[in-house]
């Protein structure tokens, strides 16, 4: 690997899900010290906090526009971030949650910066999935865990094992690629998702609609319903669907004998 020779550096960080308290000390240090702080967060409170921490904070939100394809918005964000790095500044790009989970421009900016010879790295943050494991008491080590973006899951007919946990992200915005002007949650799309899931689960199989706590004074939203009720449920864009695993099949005896070997 060629050592970066150009002035300018990029660090991509996450602010976590819950306001203020889920930003790691390492990310906080970068946010505070950056010459330029570019951010994309979900709420004005986090924005207020970032602006208090760094007077050079600039939002990337204006890269979004009604009717503008999301891919173009992401390209514009990457260009804004890279332009700041090329100016020779120490740049911090801060995103809601984990900066590498469901954040296309975070990864793209890192790749572009490295290709151009700049030092660039990403710091891990707390994602919705991390909050879900904590709030639902789920350990992916127990029986495995599969995680898909819900539209991707349907469109590409993803194969999965129902004896492992299944997490579907963004289930409230099935097939919405842009910046819609109305809240969707189209029942017919939820019906299609339910039909697919019904091939693997009983209609009474419990599912969990989950929203992490966004504010330190609020609680996570955890709603358990049977799978059959999913099409008639009003879902928001931030809802994550968790499907507990079915009972495990019998283990492979040859592998189980490994535990008795000396």
């Amino acid at each position: 690997m060629i050592a970066p020779a150009r002035a300018g550096e990029l660090v991509v960080v996450g602010t976590g899900i819950t306001l203020v308290v889920q930003t790691t000390p390492e990310a906080l240090d970068c946010i505070t010290r950056a010459d330029r702080l570019l951010y994309l967060v979900t709420d004005p409170a986090t924005e207020t906090w970032l602006r208090r921490l760094n007077g050079a904070a600039e939002t990337l939100r204006d890269c979004y526009a009604v009717g503008k394809p999301r891919e173009r918005s992401y390209r514009d964000m990457v260009q804004r971030i890279l332009a700041a790095v090329r100016s020779g500044a120490y740049v911090c790009a801060a995103f809601y949650g984990h900066p590498g989970v469901f954040v296309n421009p975070g990864h793209q900016a890192i790749r572009r910066a490295r290709r151009e010879g700049f030092r660039a790295r990403m710091l891990p943050g707390i994602s919705t999935e991390d909050c879900l494991f904590a709030d639902l008491g789920v350990d992916p080590a127990d029986s495995g865990c599969q995680s898909f973006e819900a539209t991707d899951f349907l469109a590409y007919r993803r194969r999965f094992d129902p004896t492992s946990a299944l997490i579907l992200w963004q289930v409230g915005v099935l097939g919405e690629p842009g910046f819609p002007t109305a809240v969707p949650c189209r029942p017919e799309r939820l019906e299609r998702l339910t039909r697919v899931l019904r091939r693997h689960y009983d209609e009474r199989h419990p599912i969990v609609l989950y929203e992490a706590a966004q504010f330190p004074i609020s609680e996570p939203k955890i709603r358990k319903i049977p799978l059959s009720k999913l099409p008639a449920t009003r879902l928001w864009s931030i809802t994550t669907l968790y499907i507990p695993p079915k009972p495990s099949r019998a283990p492979d005896p040859a592998v189980m004998r490994w535990f008795d070997e000396k």
Partner: peptide, 14 residues
């Protein structure tokens, strides 16, 4: 709005 809340983590459907 619910839509704004989901923006940064991105509606990433392709």
């Amino acid at each position: 709005t619910p839509w704004q809340a989901a923006l940064p983590e991105g509606v990433t459907a392709r």
